[in-house]
Design a protein around this nucleic acid. Structure first.
Length: 270
DNA sequence: CTAAGGACCTGTCGGC
DNA sequence: TGCCGACAGGTCCTTA
């Protein structure tokens, strides 16, 4: 489900309820996520004070005085605030209970998400090899160009590789390439610097716009405030197969790359 | 090293 | 109406 804008929307939604709160307890109803929920979560989290809620790539980092809970939402996960006694649904796997009487609830039907504990999150095995944040300073066209030399993989798969740049998922990869006018099938190593500059700009623009709109709700994404994201209406190509291109009226083309759907305009993207 | 495919899960939707 | 396959916002692991 969530790409960077949806995770960021979730982060902003839960932050005011969680920061400065003491964790009263943790209720784990289903431990079998992508990886079993770290046992250390049960032992270390209760009693901690939350100091901040950060995001790295698509991970939510719940920082406390004694360590960090590292939460990933996978394909179908969401986090939201409930009153502590709110009955749990079938896929509500974890509650982090707060002394305020609220609880941070993790729901994840497909269980591709994860929950780890670390006292040095940036060196955690899930995080240590990630590429730069697309909205950060080290990410630009020159960086992408440099990393892409000699690579034959399609540029769409290249920008979805978290070792290259984080946070660009299946929706925003298609959207960014449309905005930059680049054919998603083009080999990453055969794209010149100026086009990578356009692409880096496009990635930043698309992600920022989506964050401003509260993310993209295709079916079941709701931010921490319970509201769906509004960016769906602004999608140019994603999920628009056979619909007219918003620039040239040509029908949008759908293909499959790396077992994922890709959408693009054959006329506008070369 | 790179690239491609499989694996992990449940829910929903379209077609027959 | 009911069943069945295809597909879904992610990403690690294995294999070549």
């Amino acid at each position: 489900m969530p790409e960077l804008p949806e995770v960021e929307t979730s982060r902003r939604g839960i932050e005011p309820y969680v920061v400065d709160q003491k964790i009263a307890g943790v209720r784990i109803r289903e431990r079998r996520l992508r990886w079993p929920v770290d046992r250390e979560i049960d032992d270390h989290l209760p009693g901690q004070i939350v100091t901040s809620v950060d995001r790295r790539a698509k991970y939510l980092l719940i920082n406390t005085t004694g360590g960090t809970a590292i939460l990933h939402l996978g394909m179908s996960g969401s986090v939201f605030i409930v009153d502590r006694d709110t009955p749990a649904g079938v896929h509500d796997h974890v509650d982090i209970e707060l002394e305020s009487g609220h609880a941070l609830r993790l729901r994840d039907p497909r269980r591709f998400g994860s929950l780890h504990w670390s006292d040095d999150a940036s060196n955690h095995w899930l995080l240590k090899d990630l590429g730069p944040e697309p909205l950060g300073d080290e990410f630009d066209g020159e960086y992408l160009w440099g990393r892409s030399r000699g690579r034959r993989v399609a540029v769409k798969q290249f920008i979805m590789n978290a070792g290259i740049v984080v946070g660009v998922g299946n929706i925003y990869a298609s959207e960014s390439l449309f905005l930059a006018g680049i054919n998603p099938k083009r080999a990453a190593g055969r794209i010149a610097l100026p086009r990578y500059e356009a692409l880096a700009d496009a990635i930043r623009t698309v992600l920022q716009k989506s964050i401003r709109a509260g993310g993209t709700t295709l079916r079941d994404f709701y931010g921490g405030d319970g509201e769906p994201g509004n960016f769906r209406q602004e999608l140019q190509v994603y999920d628009r197969a056979d619909d007219p291109c918003r620039h040239c009226d040509q029908p949008i083309t759908a293909i499959v790359q790396g077992q994922r759907a890709t959408y693009y305009c054959k006329r506008c993207q070369t």
